[in-house]
Amino acid sequence: MKKTLCIFLALSTMFLSVYATNSIPEADRLSCWNATVDSTDSSGNQRIYRMTVQPKIAFGGVMSMGTFSASNIEAYTTYAAQEWTTVGMPVNEVNIGSANIIVYAGKRQAMLLIDNTITATTYLLPGHTYFHNGTGQPEKNWYYNSDVKCGYISNFNKVVLIWDDIIGNKLDISEGTYKNVLLHEVGHALGWYGHSSNTTDIMHKAAKDSFLLTSRDVNHVKQIKGY
């Protein structure tokens, strides 16, 4: 009896000690939509979006002169839409009035007018995806499974911004890298919240001169697509 009691108390001590330091089992962290999400937000939540509408993309225009050619960026937008469509994530090209993903290119200063949360952190980055519905009110519905945060996006504008300067200096990156940036940002608009940890993936955080989606890019989108 005493032995049983002691074992029970010892186990409870161990349990409480472990509980106090780590209350979320690792296995639960990736259970939300069975998605494998590499990165987390600042609160430690792993996050993914699920689109509940058909992605419709439009080129919104070049916003300031920069070094961009409007026709080039329009062609890259078409390329990104076709690439994601080819791998099973159909993205329709439409006119700007009916799009829920809009691509703008220009100088960073101009992009600030669309998304003033482009902070100095992002000054050094060539692309950004901004979610808005034009009214200031989010339409995302979030739910949690353990510490994985999942959100639906419905009729929600995703604005993909790319720019070619860092604080007045031209970003000297290649055409291939611009295509890579567009593919990457459209990937976010389609549901990727975080980044891949595999450096060869388009959805890895670093821009590079490659513009073909990998199987890992594709498989993750297949996991999270919801339409």
């Binding site: 937000d41 950004h128 940002e185 919240y193 975080g194 955080k205 670093a206 821009a207």
Partner: peptide, 11 residues
């Protein structure tokens, strides 16, 4: 880091 996870970083 506070680098935004949905932006790209130039090495």
């Amino acid at each position: 880091s506070v680098n935004p996870p949905n932006a790209m970083i130039i090495p």
